[in-house]
Amino acid sequence: MNALKSLQKHLMTSTSYMIPFVVAGGILFAISVMLSGEAAVPDAGWLAKLNQIGAAGLALFIPILGGYIAFSMADKPGLAPGMIGAYLANEIGAGFIGGIIAGFLAGYVVNLLKKIKLSPSFRTIGTIFIYPLGGTFIVGFIMVFLIGEPIAIFMERMTTTLNSMSGAAKIPLGGILGAMISFDMGGPVNKVAATFAQTQVDTLPFLMGGVGVAICVPPIGLGLATLLFPKKFKSEEKDSGIASLLMGGVGITEGAIPFATADPLKVIPSIILGSVVGNISAFLFGALNHAPWGGLIVLPVVEGRFGYLISVLLGASATAVALRVLKKDVVEDKLSNSEVREEDEFEDLDIKIDNL
């Protein structure tokens, strides 16, 4: 259990460093396509240059993922072996799974190298020369000559299997990914599902089609519920509803967190239901999202936009209706706190005339 928690910690550390690359690259990529007016990558003019900038961010995020896993495990000496190993994994075709394995391998190797005793005068050289060089050679050798090719074959088969899914076969996968996305609204479980889809955006864009919907459904569904069923929410929650809608539009699931914090037992099941409905619907409609991001901001790079929009609407409506059923009407307290305490005290007294 401790080992599992340690692995999760290192993975989450790397994901937190990776996300800015995905955000910057993905949004610039989406903007370039949006301004071109076509659901295709622009190939000429300044929009092609803008797309090139976005593509650079997306090209870096697997090496960043591997590098910061190793950094979390072995500090700075692990960065170069982790990034180079993950880069090689991506080049070989091992994808994000290869990048993750390279990161953990680099952290482990560098920590082993650190156990080699060096004289005090060589410790600085060890940090900037011996450990990175030795770690990069060992990890690179293992990735290129030993495990990279088998991982690439596994990734190819997984891609083929997922691509061959159609109709009802996609429902279980859509349900799992949708539930994971909304379960902790940007936390570790969310990041695992989002990273899985984001790193497959070039080969399996239908994954991001569903996950892109699931990402925005919780905040949009909650915002919609505050508009349709205002009696279910306090005044400050109603004020947060508009902000929640906007955050959902730009693909920020965390917009649901204030509502979930206030009433987790009602809100979390509702947003899970909505994300599951939205994700499955997008899969069945065949929506393809070519940007590693979610929400409505990516519509310019979505194939099957009508299905994508309908899926967002279905998911948000499912969340809103679930909240309508689960939440009670908010009753404003008319009595002051002191009056409520006095009233409670009188209700607790059990005075009978026969006892006097």
Rank of each mutant, 00 (worst) to 15 (best):
K5C: 03
L7T: 13
M12Q: 14
T15M: 15
T15G: 13
Y17N: 12
M18F: 07
F21T: 09
V23A: 11
A24R: 05
I27T: 10
A30H: 02
S36C: 00
E38I: 06
V41T: 13
V41I: 10
G45D: 08
K49E: 05
N51H: 14
N51F: 05
A55F: 09
G57E: 00
D75F: 12
I84H: 00
L88R: 06
L88S: 09
N90T: 15
I92F: 05
A94N: 10
I101K: 10
V109T: 04
N111P: 02
P120D: 14
I128H: 07
I130V: 12
Y131L: 02
T136P: 06
F137Q: 06
M143H: 02
P150Q: 06
E156Q: 13
T160M: 12
T161L: 15
S166Y: 11
A169W: 15
P172C: 09
G174V: 10
I176C: 08
L177Q: 12
L177D: 08
M180Q: 02
S182K: 05
M185H: 03
G186I: 01
G186E: 00
V189N: 00
N190Q: 10
K191G: 04
A194E: 12
F196M: 04
Q198V: 07
T199D: 03
T199G: 12
T199I: 13
V201S: 05
F206H: 08
M208S: 13
V213F: 05
C216I: 05
P219D: 02
P219A: 02
G221V: 00
L228W: 11
P230K: 14
P230T: 06
D239N: 09
I242Q: 05
A243C: 11
M247W: 01
M247K: 03
G249Q: 06
I252C: 10
E254P: 04
I257A: 07
A262G: 14
I268K: 05
P269D: 08
I272A: 02
V276F: 12
F283M: 11
L284E: 08
F285M: 08
P292Q: 01
V298L: 00
L299S: 08
R305A: 08
G307W: 04
I310C: 06
L313H: 01
L314T: 03
L314P: 01
S317E: 07
T319F: 03
L323C: 08
K327L: 10
V331C: 03
E332C: 00
E332Q: 06
D333E: 12
V340G: 12
E343R: 15
E343F: 14
D344H: 14
E345F: 15
F346V: 15
D348M: 09
I351E: 13
K352Y: 12
